[in-house]
Design a protein around this nucleic acid. Structure first.
Lengths: 344, 344
DNA sequence: AGGGAAATCCAAAGCGCTTTGGAAAGCGCC
DNA sequence: GGCGCTTTCCAAAGCGCTTTGGATTTCCCT
């Protein structure tokens, strides 16, 4: 069922049927109702490719996902993020499209995306420090919003980010207040901007307290459970082990806890742990009392805000770039306590 | 840059340029090279909507995701699954598109998808027992492959599934062999087909061993960490608590372990745990020795097989439906041991 | 009744591609 | 030189929609 045959059935021109369905005022209410009814009856939907060709709009938002280096897709954060984003997309009639890209081909892929006209805009996930994709997209002129920011990039761009520096600074201060002096940071990959900022916050809090950061207590890698476990086990074997650990995610924190358990130590009493909690649906930080003391910020919410902003940007490309900073909340759970030395 | 202007630049007709780029034999090697070079130089990509209009193919594969009941998207399994799928898509030039659907609107959405012509086929995720979407898609004639199966549906359809019944049967037998008699099942939502089958396997193993399944030991819900924790805590408080627990996923197993720890019990010694391990990238079952004894089956691999099958189905719609059964492997880790009673 | 504005509708062009049905050119061969 | 064949190219139709520019009808007002 297409416009032509529908119009024929209705004894109307394609123009009128099209206008009736798209809410133009040049058509009487009576015929509009008649048309709408017939469309429903015949299960008519305008072909999206034809519509796109005619309007120049795809009604699709792209997510370009680097395949190898950082496993954007398999990170559990991903699902919650796009779940949030999809809420806004659905509300505004957009679909979302994913393109997997091998590293190095990113520029190609963005060019292709705009040349092929398959998306109206993209969301830029996992920005790195000094991320070349931002100037690239600005140059190409494809509307985009960044999930996060990119230190070192001066040009204007829209973003939604958690105040990572501040939240890790506060978390560190909280541990310092509890008397901890040997505080470890099990961070994400530090080429990632969010990890970079978290480290800044951590280092700054230590320095303010007059403590020189110990490189042996600072780790960086992809935030898996195994990683959290391995680094913790190693550090607990040190002659001067940390009494507190800042973990980058719930998943790595779970690995941290496992290592602490295996070492025969007790969480909070022997080793305090603070993690960042993205408020993932399948990995809630406990039901009533939080399992971990954590800096919490919902990534679903970020996704929703972000996609709203992108849709606005697409519809008004010349409006100034918007930015949105989310403050993480420090929730105190059962994974932190006074430093062991303080206890005696 | 479009075909027309590119053709003009080359002093050729659109036809020839199109044929040259699409590998038709009616064009000399010399001109083909000339055309390809010019295309590269001008960064030309055929507009995908126009191409789709002309060919009737979208080169897009759809994933329709129910929004509320089962949070398909936020389940960490989702990311690994589509990471696997996207490998095949990328290799064959397909993009993937996601459509979020509120419950009840599914039929509408599938109809819309085929009417709008925005996808060439879909992957059906999270099939329930007796899932109406399968007959629906067969009726509509949209190519699809099911990730899993649907008990109670007799018509023919393509699927890729793990032998869930067998793997949970084996896991239960393994626990029985260790002397366990009180074995709990912390299952997924049992309207989901995979969970339904797992329960069958579990029940059958018990019955074969002459043990009547105890409804108080069988739980069913969405497989979150908090759920695993809560059910375990409850069951451990019973007057006749289980000595072994079958968990539905790594994430719920982590909750199970947390509850065991909190109860002051020791994993494997006091309570044995077996989980199903989807081999998620961020949640590997340990690095060397498996943390949990588990039935393991890579969901990434399933995704890749599935998407390959779907592409074949799209390209040869009349070929008979293929099916692919994956056997889960039972890996013995450090979460199981002889039943406590046996120890004395 | 007649003029002009408003309401309602339509034919046809155009979006950028593929593909059909031919045409023109080049070639060997009798 | 003319025939048939292959090679190489092209004009134009068509995919299904939106939208421009214009035609026709209706309605109101003087």
């Amino acid at each position: 069922m297409n416009l032509k045959t529908l119009a024929k059935k209705l004894q109307l021109s394609q123009t009128t049927v099209s206008r009736a369905l798209n809410g133009y005022p040049e058509v009487s209410e009576a015929t509009r109702r008649r048309v709408e009814e017939a469309a429903r009856a015949h299960n008519y939907r305008p072909n999206s490719r034809a519509k796109g060709l005619a309007t120049g709009r795809a009604m699709v938002i792209g997510h370009v996902i680097p395949a190898s280096t950082q496993h954007e897709m398999v990170n559990p954060v991903f699902g919650d993020f796009i779940a949030g984003a999809s809420r806004a997309y659905a509300a505004f009639g957009y679909d979302m499209m994913f393109t997997r890209v091998d590293d190095g081909d990113e520029e190609q892929v963005y060019h292709a995306l705009v040349a092929k006209g398959s998306v109206d805009g993209v969301i830029l996930q996992g920005p790195r420090v000094n991320d070349g994709r931002i100037p690239l997209l600005n140059r190409i002129g494809l509307p985009f919003i960044v999930h996060g920011r990119s230190s070192g990039i001066d040009e204007s761009y829209g973003w939604v980010d958690v105040n990572n520096k501040r939240s890790f600074q506060r978390a560190t201060e909280f541990l310092l207040d509890l008397g901890h002096r040997r505080i470890a940071l099990i961070n994400g990959l530090e080429q990632m901007d969010f990890a970079h900022r978290r480290r800044e916050g951590y280092v700054e809090a230590l320095k303010t307290a007059g403590i020189e950061p110990d490189p042996a207590l600072m780790r960086s890698a992809e935030m898996t459970e195994v990683y959290g476990h391995r680094e913790t086990r190693e550090m607990l074997k040190m002659e001067n082990p940390p009494t507190a650990i800042l973990a980058a995610s719930m998943i790595s924190a779970i690995g941290v806890r496992r290592a602490i358990d295996e070492a025969g130590l007790t969480l909070a009493r022997d080793v305090s742990v603070i993690t960042h909690d993205d408020d993932l649906s399948y990995l809630r930080n406990g039901s009533d009392v939080p399992i971990f003391t954590a800096t919490r910020s919902s990534v679903q919410q970020a996704g929703e805000i972000l996609s709203r902003m992108l849709i606005e940007k697409i519809e008004q490309p010349d409006a100034p770039n918007q930015t949105h900073m989310l403050e993480a909340e420090l929730v105190v759970g059962r994974s932190t306590g006074p430093a062991p030395e303080m206890r005696r």
